[in-house]
C-alpha cells in the first residue's frame, strides 16, 4: 500500500482545495461590489447614475425629440401618496427640464422616505443626467404634510438614435427607522 508516502501528499491537495473553497466563498461576496461596478458602467438593470451631474454645457440637439415617461410607486406598506406632476415630457437631447413629484404623508406620524430610481431601457440609463433631484437625499415629511419635490435633468446629446422613449421609475421606501442625523434635525424644526 502506498499509504505512507501518499498521506502528506493528501494533505497538500486538501489544503489547496480548502483554499479554493474559501476563495470561492469570498468570491460570492465579491460579486456584490462587482455587480455594482458593472451596473454603473453599463446601466445594466436600469441603474442610473444617482449623483448630481454637472449642468449641460453642450448644444441642444433640436433635431431630435425623446419622450421621457415618469412612473412612481410606493414600496409595500408605505402609507404615502407619491406621483409625478406630469406623466411624460418630450425633450430635445441637451435640453434641461424640471419635473415635480408630489408626495403626501397620509399618516399621523412624522416620517422619512427615500426614492430609488430605475430607468428602462437600461441602455438609456447612462444618458440620463440629473442636475438636481430629491432622490439624492432622504425626504422628511411631517404628519399629514405634502410637498412638491423637484427633479431637474437633461439627456446627454450622445444618446443613441434608436432610443425614442425612456421610462424613469421611482419607488418610494420608508426610511424612518434609518434616517440620517441631519434629516432628523431638519424634522425637529418647527413648521413655518
Amino acid at each position: 500500500m502506498t499509504d505512507t508516502n501518499s498521506r502528506p501528499d493528501n494533505m497538500r491537495i486538501v489544503r489547496r482545495l480548502l483554499f479554493t473553497v474559501a476563495g470561492m466563498f469570498a468570491f460570492g461576496f465579491a460579486l456584490v461590489p462587482i455587480y455594482d461596478v458593472i451596473c454603473d458602467l453599463t446601466g445594466f438593470n436600469g441603474r442610473t447614475n444617482n449623483e448630481q451631474a454637472a449642468a449641460n454645457v453642450r448644444e441642444v440637439d433640436t433635431s431630435r425629440t425623446v419622450n421621457v415617461q415618469f412612473i412612481t410607486r410606493v414600496n409595500k406598506g408605505m402609507p404615502w401618496d407619491f406621483e409625478p406632476e406630469v406623466t411624460s415630457v418630450r425633450v430635445h437631447p441637451g435640453e434641461t427640464r424640471v419635473v415635480n413629484f408630489l408626495a403626501h404623508n397620509l399618516t399621523r406620524g412624522d416620517m422619512v422616505a427615500q426614492a430609488i430610481p430605475s430607468v428602462a431601457p437600461g441602455e438609456a440609463a447612462l444618458y440620463l443626467n440629473k442636475t438636481e433631484c430629491f432622490c439624492f437625499n432622504q425626504q422628511p415629511l411631517k404628519a399629514g404634510d405634502d410637498v412638491a419635490m423637484p427633479m431637474q435633468f437633461y439627456l446627454d446629446p450622445d444618446i443613441p438614435d434608436h432610443i425614442h422613449t425612456l421610462t424613469l421609475s421611482y419607488t418610494l421606501y420608508d426610511m424612518t427607522a434609518h434616517a440620517t442625523p441631519d434629516v432628523l434635525a431638519l424634522m425637529q424644526q418647527p413648521a413655518d
Binding site: 473553497v21 474559501a22 470561492m24 466563498f25 468570491f27 460570492g28 461576496f29 460579486l31 456584490v32
Partner: peptide, 13 residues
C-alpha cells in the same frame, strides 16, 4: 468545489 461556496454565500446574504 467552485460553486457550493457561492451557494453558501447566497444563503448567508
Amino acid at each position: 468545489i467552485a460553486v457550493m461556496p457561492v451557494l453558501a454565500g447566497a444563503v448567508t446574504m
